[in-house]
Design a binder for these strands. Sequence first.
DNA 1: TTGTATAGTATTAAAAAAGGTACTGTAATG
DNA 2: CATTACAGTACCTTTTTTAATACTATACAA
Lengths: 119, 119
Amino acid sequence: MQKNPVQCQFVVALDSIVGKWKPIILYHLLQGKPLRFNELRRLLPDITQRMLTLHLRELEEEEIVKRVIYPQIPPKVEYSITEYGKSLSPILETLHQWGAAHLERKQLKEAKNEQTETD
Amino acid sequence: MQKNPVQCQFVVALDSIVGKWKPIILYHLLQGKPLRFNELRRLLPDITQRMLTLHLRELEEEEIVKRVIYPQIPPKVEYSITEYGKSLSPILETLHQWGAAHLERKQLKEAKNEQTETD
DNA sequence: TTGTATAGTATTAAAAAAGGTACTGTAATG
DNA sequence: CATTACAGTACCTTTTTTAATACTATACAA
């Protein structure tokens, strides 16, 4: 990892939200309702337990996500967004909007290409 | 890559700016001045030619960066941000701000820990 | 007694990303 | 004549990320 100070702020921010599953985990947790481990699994049908664990640990480490263990059997663990984590909301929002526009643009272009090909 | 529609917009947006060097390449190009290949290399002292080429190609593919070849010898190629690429500006800006705050927070916390340890 | 649900861990394998080094061709410079 | 600048490409290795599978413990239900 380059130690370039200019890059740092971007990288720091991106590290917190990048990862194959982090954006969607955050998306769900930002809805506000705490979610249990298996609830998250069901919301991300293709994630493996290992990957979910790893990403949640990273998010917890950065105090973006809070992990609460209820000492019961069978075990219960709830994950929720922290106040600090909520500050990511504008970033996610901006990304989502840009992504949507980007997709639309791509699709328009593809449609145009198909048209000129059949002309 | 998960084909989850909820994740798509995030992933699409992130793909355009994520990569070990993309944010800093974009940062420099967003200054407005077109940059030559080797100028970029000098600005990113640790990047290899190969990595710079690959990232620039990806950015070009997405029409975020424009590549102009001047048929001279020695060759001259200029990279610049496109109008479309400029639309990434708010994302980068938001990320940069959040990253700066996140770093500050981390440093404050470390300082606090050191203090309590020496108490 | 077998199976289910819970929230994971451990181990190994595969795939993707990044890095390192050498090499191209042409012209100008020392 | 050797070196430098330019903008890369080709080939190979290392590192990182992701995936797959099996396993843990406990309690409850059929």
